[in-house]
Amino acid sequence: MCGRFTFQPNDNDEINKIYQLAVENGYEPKTGEIFPTDQTAIVRSGTNQVQVVTMKWGFPGFKQGQNVINARSETIMQKPMFAESFMNRRCVYPTTGFFEWSDDKVKHRFNYGSDPETLYIAGCYKNFDGEPHSVLLTTAPNDSMIKIHDRMPLILQKTQIKSWIYDQKFAIEFLNSPMPMLESVPFNN
């Protein structure tokens, strides 16, 4: 599961460019630590190219006030809540890392290294009452994650973003891809 991530435009030039594109498109993505239900920057399909917008993180759940923030890549095509969105409306979360908590309640920040590098997470979205909501995809953890948590985000390389968004065959095949090795740093906050 991925329950929090960061979007730090002041600490990362690539994220700053994504943030500026969102602002130029009339959006105000939340920055810093991103929580479920926050309006976060999302890369999705546009008319002729990808575009940066904001969306609420999480689909409304089955109970009042419930928020579903993640979808399992292994079962996404079988789950009625996600299947149609995955097949038709894929998106990408640009982040500067994500957080997980170990069994002993220690918060860990994950990224490629100790700096807030750009880390792209696969997602999909759907409109609820005219407002777009998104979920990110998770997969089985690799060796860099397994000691902390039993799930990890489905991570894309920058060169895979357009394929994820526009190429259904690529997206289906990518669901089973091995994830990159990440570094974990205990985070006191």
Rank of each mutant, 00 (worst) to 15 (best):
G3M: 04
L175V: 06
K17V: 00
T96I: 02
T54R: 11
I146G: 00
E74L: 07
T138P: 01
Q49L: 04
L156Q: 03
M1S: 15
Q157R: 14
W164Q: 12
F86A: 07
E33F: 05
M55K: 05
V106M: 14
P153H: 07
F110N: 02
T54Y: 09
P153L: 09
L156V: 05
G113R: 04
M81W: 02
G46K: 13
D38K: 00
V185D: 01
D143P: 00
N70Y: 10
L137G: 00
K105Q: 13
D129M: 11
Q168I: 08
D115G: 06
P94R: 09
G97C: 05
G123N: 02
D38Q: 01
G97D: 03
V53T: 15
K169F: 05
D167G: 09
P36Q: 05
F35Q: 12
Y27H: 10
N127L: 09
A171E: 10
Q66P: 00
V92G: 09
H133M: 04
C124N: 12
F62S: 07
G61L: 10
I69G: 11
P141T: 08
Q49W: 01
I15F: 02
M81P: 00
G113I: 00
I165P: 12
M145K: 11
Q51R: 13
M81K: 13
Y27R: 03
I155L: 07
G123T: 06
Y112P: 01
I18E: 00
Y27D: 01
E183T: 13
S85T: 06
S177D: 10
D129H: 14
T40N: 11
Y19M: 02
L154I: 08
E117S: 12
A171R: 11
K169V: 12
S85A: 15
T95Q: 05
K107E: 05
V43I: 15
K63T: 06
M77C: 06
V53F: 08
F174V: 03
F59Y: 15
V50A: 09
